[in-house]
């Protein structure tokens, strides 16, 4: 698998990253080097092997349905650049 410049530009746009035109080619090269490294795994025959989700063998921990958190709007919005009452305030977004 190898990425072209258009694909890298589109991934950057989806990730909301502004990548200047002159940075695109070097980024294509970097990403392809990374992908090439990971692709070495393709050399291993994994026919019939279940995908491995975790090496620990633990089960997904589950909690009881109880209200144990919340009730601190001032902490939640403490880092917000702008807030009104206890709302976050952001530049108007209407589709």
């Amino acid at each position: 698998m190898s990425l072209d410049k258009a694909t890298v530009a589109s991934i950057a746009a989806l990730a909301r990253l502004r990548v200047p035109e002159e940075r695109l080619e070097p980024m294509v090269a970097d990403l392809n080097t990374i992908l090439g490294f990971v692709e070495q795994l393709d050399e291993v025959d994994t026919t019939g092997v279940e995908p491995l989700a975790s090496v620990t063998g633990h089960a997904l921990p589950q909690r009881d349905d109880a209200v144990t958190d919340g009730g601190y709007p001032e902490r939640v919005t403490a880092n917000a650049p702008d807030r009104v009452n206890d709302f976050y305030a952001v530049p108007k977004v209407v589709e």
Binding site: R63, V67, T68, D69, G70, G71, P73, V76, D86, F87
Partner: peptide, 17 residues
């Protein structure tokens, strides 16, 4: 998360980190 789900609460009062 353990935050409550009731409808119509005051803004951001049922929000965990």
């Amino acid at each position: 998360s353990g935050a409550a789900t009731t409808f119509g609460a005051e803004p951001n009062t049922q929000v965990s980190l």
